[in-house]
Simulated assay, not measured.
Amino acid sequence: MQTRTSLTLRQQRLGTELRKLRERAGFTSTEAAALLGGPQSRISNIEAGRYAVSADRVRAMAHNYACADEAYVEALASMTGTRTRGWWDEYQDRFAPGLIDLAEMEHHATALRVAVVIHIPGLLQTANHARAVMEESVPPLRPYEIEHRVSYRIKRQAVLYEGTPTPYTAIVHEAALRMGYGGRHVAREQLGILLEEGERDNVTLLVIPFGASFPASGQSITYASGPVAQLDTVVLDTDHGCEFVDAAAQLERYRSVLDRMEAQALSPEKSRELIHRIAQDT
Rank of each mutant, 00 (worst) to 15 (best):
E106T: 12
H108V: 11
A111G: 07
A111P: 03
V114L: 03
V114D: 04
V114P: 02
A115V: 01
I118D: 15
I118V: 14
I120D: 03
P121S: 03
P121A: 07
G122N: 10
L124D: 01
A127V: 06
H129C: 11
A130W: 01
R131F: 01
A132K: 05
A132P: 03
E135F: 01
E136D: 07
E136K: 07
S137Q: 11
S137C: 10
S137K: 09
V138W: 10
P140D: 11
R142Y: 07
R142I: 00
R142S: 12
P143L: 11
P143W: 10
P143F: 10
Y144I: 10
Y144E: 15
E147M: 12
H148R: 02
H148E: 12
R149A: 08
R149K: 11
S151Y: 00
Y152L: 15
I154K: 01
I154P: 02
K155G: 12
K155C: 06
Q157A: 11
Q157F: 07
V159Q: 06
L160Q: 04
Y161P: 00
G163I: 00
G163N: 14
T164P: 05
P165H: 07
T166S: 08
P167C: 04
P167Y: 05
Y168G: 01
T169I: 14
A170K: 03
I171S: 09
E174P: 09
A175S: 13
A176M: 05
A176H: 07
R178L: 04
R178D: 08
M179V: 07
M179F: 06
G180F: 05
G183E: 04
G183M: 12
H185Q: 13
R188V: 13
E189D: 15
Q190F: 00
G192K: 00
L194D: 04
L195D: 00
L195Y: 00
E196I: 03
E196R: 14
E197I: 03
G198V: 04
G198L: 02
G198I: 01
E199Q: 15
R200D: 02
R200Y: 09
D201G: 09
D201M: 05
N202F: 00
N202S: 13
N202Q: 10
V203C: 01
T204N: 09
L206F: 12
V207E: 04
I208T: 05
P209S: 05
G211K: 08
G211I: 08
A212C: 10
S217G: 13
S217N: 11
Q219K: 08
T222N: 09
Y223A: 08
A224Q: 00
G226A: 10
P227W: 06
V228F: 00
Q230G: 03
Q230E: 15
T233V: 15
V234W: 04
V235Y: 13
H240E: 15
H240I: 15
